[in-house]
Amino acid sequence: MLFDIRRILGGLFAVYGVILVIVGVLDGAEEIAKAEGVRINLWTGIGMLVIAAIFLVWERLRPKDVPDPSDETSGDA
């Protein structure tokens, strides 16, 4: 692999998550009323931060997702 998509995806979602959480905290009554009484920016922001964390932690724990070739025989035809 040429570079790790998990880091880029994690990074983008972290930035989006932070932006949405801030906007969500600052949302006024009008925005909340529009979204059926839900602070949707806040919740979406939190959701995106969770996704970001999953990708970044995964990348940290298994930096290379390319295991070495083994001698295992395969059943592929």
Binding site: F13, A35, I40, I51
Partner: peptide, 24 residues
């Protein structure tokens, strides 16, 4: 790589629509 990113962004954009729509 862009397809992978796009997948997550479109889902992130559509899920709130579905949830709020179902609440309504």
């Amino acid at each position: 790589y862009n397809e992978v990113m796009q997948f997550f962004v479109i889902i992130a954009g559509l899920v709130p629509v579905v949830i709020l729509g179902l609440i309504r």
